[in-house]
Design a protein around this nucleic acid. Structure first.
Lengths: 194, 194
DNA sequence: TCTTACACTAATCAATTGACCAGTGAAAGT
DNA sequence: ACTTTCACTGGTCAATTGATTAGTGTAAGA
């Protein structure tokens, strides 16, 4: 009963940290704001997590646990032998994930180019994702893989991590189910055509 | 001679602010860091620009002046009647711009979803860009336009604004001229096929 | 030449930051 | 029942933040 409460509190904090950081950036959000969102005091953050940096790592772990879970479900869902349909379904899954977790791209863009957090993220989580992508796309020319990887990522998720600006510009809400569907269809039509 | 020096100093500061903010985010960089990069004292920033927020706006203006300039050159460069080639060239131009100005996407992602800076950016610069895109793509279904806009943007620029991570993951440097070329070719082949 | 204008510096401000620490109260172990 | 453990609070710390201000030197205008 003691440990369950402890774990629940920790998760509460980690979730608050993940979403707050995704919205305002690591430097843009204070530990006090995160604590307030989680409904705890600021001192508790340094009690459970030694520093803000460690809390950020916990948030990253939490995010990528979600991603890994989604990837498992995605490959489990398709026992379709038609390779074209598999490709379409892959694109569709990425779009759906991007819409359900718009914090993903924001969180990763927030990790700048030169920071120490960037290196940690690459080695701890991104490399694993990237390797899986390589393994799933052996038919692609080797030199094309990184390009296709970033094309797919950017094309499928950017609209959702900029949903507010998109709404202001176009009038449509990209997070609305019918627009998510549309995004998936358009992107699949564009990328999977042969 | 007095005003020229003044303008030169201001531009020096604005450029330093733009690149520093693109790297570390608005909240991630201090006015002192920006001043040091520009080779001036911190007090001079609040002398020329009243606040950090105003300096950010000046940096945004500078960035979008570059974008507008690139857009002018792009449409000037293509007097090709073949619509398919026009499309290919448009994609190519976007990729090239993204590689030459990787700060663009970082700067815009840094502007969160709810901030006042976001609204200002939309009304002052983004709407103009988006309207131009709409005008240039009247053949697209109206409902598809925002989706294609973000697909094109994300797909063409994300790899460059994450060049460091891409380098660590894949071993290739996306900013190298041959990789920029490759990215343009792959994306054009994917998006322009009919 | 002299005086004004002004780009610029250096010192200082209050406010916010992340981290630290002494205390508290209730659950858990004996 | 008694003690210990420990999740958690409130207060405090030095450091950094953006902003303000008084002062300086030189180019421009008289």
């Amino acid at each position: 009963m003691r440990t369950e409460q402890r774990d629940a509190t920790r998760e509460q904090i980690v979730r608050a940290a993940l979403f707050a950081i995704s919205e305002s950036g690591y430097d843009g959000v204070s530990t006090r704001t995160i604590a307030a969102r989680a409904g705890v005091t600021q001192g508790l953050l340094t009690y459970h997590f030694k520093s803000k940096d460690v809390l950020w790592r916990a948030a990253a772990d939490y995010l990528f646990a979600t991603i890994d879970e989604a990837l498992e479900l995605a490959i489990a869902g398709l026992d379709n032998p038609n390779p074209k349909d598999v490709r379409r379904e892959t694109v569709r899954q990425m779009v759906i994930f991007g819409s359900k977790h718009p914090e993903t791209m924001r969180f990763m863009m927030d990790v700048g180019e030169t920071e120490s957090r960037g290196d940690w993220l690459v080695e701890t989580h991104l490399r694993r994702i990237y390797q899986r992508f390589c393994a799933d796309n052996t038919d692609l020319p080797k030199a094309d893989i990184p390009h296709v990887f970033y094309i797919l990522t950017g094309a499928s998720m950017m609209i959702f991590s900029n949903s507010s600006k998109c709404r202001q510009l176009s009038g449509i809400d990209p997070l609305a189910p019918e627009e998510v569907q549309r995004h998936a269809d358009i992107l699949a039509d564009l990328l999977v055509r042969d």
